[in-house]
Design a protein around this nucleic acid. Structure first.
Length: 443
RNA sequence: GGAGAGAUGGCCGAGUGGCUUAAGGCGCACGCUUGGAAAGCGUGUAUACCGCAAGGUAUCCAGGGUUCGAAUCCCUGUCUCUCCGCCA
């Protein structure tokens, strides 16, 4: 969300930059008249209120002196009525203005290329060697089912489409990945581990920008009744689509201390996505699930530090891929392909031999003050009286499900077994290869 | 789920209808004092919005209501605490 005064002073700039993102600039057409309407109603209403307040004080004085007060009481009542009408006008204009501002996506940073779709993303670098196999590389679902570590059919029976059941060494591999990533980020990259709630209220989802526009992508619990569009409660429940939501909202409505630099959190959580609108996309395997796990990186920074921190955070995510020996490339997203709240985003894409393509495994974004304004997260700049909005950043470090399938595909062997990357072996009780699971009578 | 108590500024805490944006204390900042420090003394210390400005408006958990006037009275909700019940 933008600052009202900023929009007022920079309308042409906004229209131009938002058009880079494919935002219809007519959205801003109503701004000026709404703004003027709101301001004049407020000014008038407040003038009347000041008069009423003065009359009330006068009333008190007269009452104490025993004077006649019916005339003055009638006067204030008349003023009250007028004031209430004006206030209603002000509130309506204010709400319209606010929902207009809330619906605008963030401005792309100068370094972000123009473009409408992922076709125009820019590849900044590639890392690692694409493995070649002397046998036909299989997709992960075939590998996993053959090994007996992935069971999509039973997951469908239990829960429906887009769920998976992981078993034996396959379940342990998921846990090993989480521990490996958390240890790397906390021990070597300076992040503080947090374990946040997996259910959040709608105020939190507003703060990070998922609500009100993207409600259909989320799972909503109706224990407090249905979601009313645009109403942000502190007592309703949604399943988190990413740890970004609870972790960024840790400091909602707070003034935090950044005098010693940024605050960095890492969190391992389940993530839940309805995947509405992606019917028929990635239906096989565990690329696109309703539930997956992710280790997330979140930073709160001073504005002047955020772009350096964005590079650092992206490197922290890349380090995971490099330690695991997974080939990847870094894409700088063009304006049209970025998320709603982001000013600049790098996607990391991992090579999947089974599908002969790169797929997104991490998304690292700088939101500048966009989320901080929605969530009201501020800090006091050194020597300044007034608190300013912080910059927030986050990135996957990494999506565990996708890392998992990348390992299956990149480390597969001719006999169907899968080698375990060295960095992961200490987390796998010394296992070095996953072979066809003997799960005894379990299945 | 049942019963009760509570929510006031960065923190503690007073305040049951006008003289309360809110006493007092702590903390913090600045100044005086001092060889220097502590103590002491003095001054200052919320946010948002409207206004060219002077200034004004709003905010004592949130939302409604009563009243000429609400931190204060009434209703609803949220959260916290205590006890009971249930429970991983």
């Amino acid at each position: 969300m933008y600052d009202l005064a900023f929009v007022r002073g920079n309308l042409p700039l906004l229209e131009e930059r938002l058009s880079l993102r494919g935002v219809d600039s007519s959205l801003l057409d109503g701004f000026s008249s709404l703004d003027a309407e709101r301001r004049s109603a407020i000014t008038e209403a407040e003038t009347l209120k000041a008069q009423r307040n003065a009359l009330s004080a006068e009333f008190g004085r007269m009452k104490r002196e025993g004077a006649e007060t019916t005339a003055i009481a009638a006067k204030t009542l008349a003023l009250k009525e007028k004031t209430e009408q004006l206030e209603a006008v002000a509130v309506e204009a204010d709400q319209k203005l606010r929902s207009l501002l809330e619906s605008l996506p963030n401005l792309p940073h100068e370094s972000v290329p123009a473009g409408a779709s992922e076709q125009e993303n820019f590849c900044e670098k590639t890392w690692g060697e694409i493995p070649s196999f002397d046998f036909p590389a299989k997709p992960h679902w075939e590998i996993g089912e053959h090994l007996g570590i992935l069971d999509f059919e039973r997951a469908a029976k239990i829960s429906g489409a887009r769920f998976v059941l992981q078993l034996g060494s396959g379940a342990r591999l998921e846990r090993a990945l989480a521990n490996f990533m958390l240890d790397l980020h906390t021990r070597e990259h300076g992040y503080v581990e947090v374990l946040p709630p997996s259910l959040v209220n709608s105020r939190s989802l507003f703060g990070t920008g998922q609500l009100p526009k993207f409600a259909e992508d989320l799972f909503h619990c109706d224990d407090k009744g249905p979601y009313v569009a645009g109403e942000f409660q502190e007592n309703d429940h949604w399943l988190i689509p990413t740890a970004e939501v609870p972790v960024t909202n840790i400091f909602r409505d707070e003034i935090i201390d950044l005098s010693n630099g940024s605050i960095s959190f890492t969190a391992w959580t389940p993530c839940f996505r309805s995947e509405a609108g992606s019917h028929g996309k990635d239906t096989r395997g565990m690329i696109r699930q309703h539930q997956f796990q992710k280790v997330e990186l979140v930073k709160f920074t001073r504005p002047e530090d955020s772009y350096a921190e964005h590079e650092a955070l992206t490197r922290h995510a890349e380090a995971v891929l490099e330690r695991l020996g997974l080939p990847y490339r870094r894409m700088l997203l063009c304006a049209g392909d970025m998320g709603f709240s982001s000013a600049k985003t790098y996607d990391l894409e991992v090579w999947l031999p089974g599908q002969q393509t790169y797929r997104e495994i991490s998304s690292c974004s700088n939101f500048e003050g966009f989320q901080a304004r929605r969530a009201n997260i501020r800090y006091r700049p050194a020597g300044a009286r007034k608190a300013e909005f912080v910059h927030t950043l986050n990135g996957s470090g990494l999506a565990i499900g996708r890392t998992y399938l990348a390992i299956l595909e990149n480390y597969q062997q001719a006999d169907g077994s899968v080698r375990i990357p060295g960095a992961l072996q200490p987390y796998m009780n010394g296992e070095t290869v996953i072979t066809r699971q003997s799960l005894g009578r379990a299945l």
